[in-house]
């Protein structure tokens, strides 16, 4: 059986985590909903897949969101390092397009530790950095007929200080709560080999 989700989520503070997969945006949004205070979302300006605040409003209040449009990855990393180190923003979400090398990943970790903030990198699949604390894979799950269509499958595929696990979760946008759906005979890691 999987470990309890509450041991790993919300993510550990003072660390930088990674999430990949098609459900990464909703993972970040649900993480923001679990916290308080402003959220800084560092994007790369050329990326045309803009965030839609009305969609985010179902998960958390977009008034808390600040979006930084960086011209490139180096600037995006510099901005998120600055914000992590500063500590004024409890959660910094960074969109990454190129793999981080060990030095960049480590710098983000040190900045998060100095500022006691949480960092989350949205990465393309298979581009994880070795310095990350946990790496998640989030994907929408096709729920059975009649269920609502917010079901997600979250898996930890790398964890420096704990075990791996997989959970079926569902976001309730009236109660603004995350429900963990009991696994239907699924073992952790059976859908995908842990990485």
């Amino acid at each position: 059986m999987s470990a309890n989700l509450s041991q790993c989520f919300p993510l550990r503070r003072s660390r930088v985590h990674e999430v990949c997969g098609p459900g990464a945006t909703s993972f970040a949004a649900i993480l923001a909903a679990r916290g308080t205070g402003p959220v800084l979302w560092v994007r790369q300006g050329w990326d045309h897949q803009a965030l839609h605040p009305l969609g985010l409003a179902r998960v958390f209040d977009p008034a808390r969101l600040l979006v930084a449009q960086a011209p490139g990855q180096v600037d995006a990393l510099a901005v998120s390092e600055e914000a992590l180190r500063d500590g004024a923003v409890p959660l910094v979400v960074t969109e990454i397009v190129q793999p981080l090398d060990l030095r960049q990943g480590r710098r983000l970790q040190l900045a998060a530790k100095a500022g006691a903030t949480t960092g989350l990198c949205l990465i393309p699949e298979g581009m994880g950095s070795n310095a990350t604390e946990t790496r998640w894979h989030a994907a929408p799950r096709l729920a059975a007929e009649g269920e609502d269509s917010t079901a997600l499958r979250w898996e930890i595929i790398k964890n420096k200080s704990g075990t791996l696990g997989a959970w079926d979760v569902r976001w309730d946008d009236t109660a603004h709560r995350l429900h963990v759906v009991p696994p239907a005979g699924e073992r952790p890691g059976s859908a995908r080999a842990p990485g």
Partner: peptide, 25 residues
């Protein structure tokens, strides 16, 4: 919301990527 610490952070980020690139909806 945020207060002076957040304003300072926005200023510092703004010196790097331009103040108009830190946005809200």
């Amino acid at each position: 919301a945020g207060g002076p610490a957040l304003d300072d952070l926005v200023t510092r980020i703004g010196t790097r990527i331009g103040l108009e690139n830190v946005q809200r909806f």
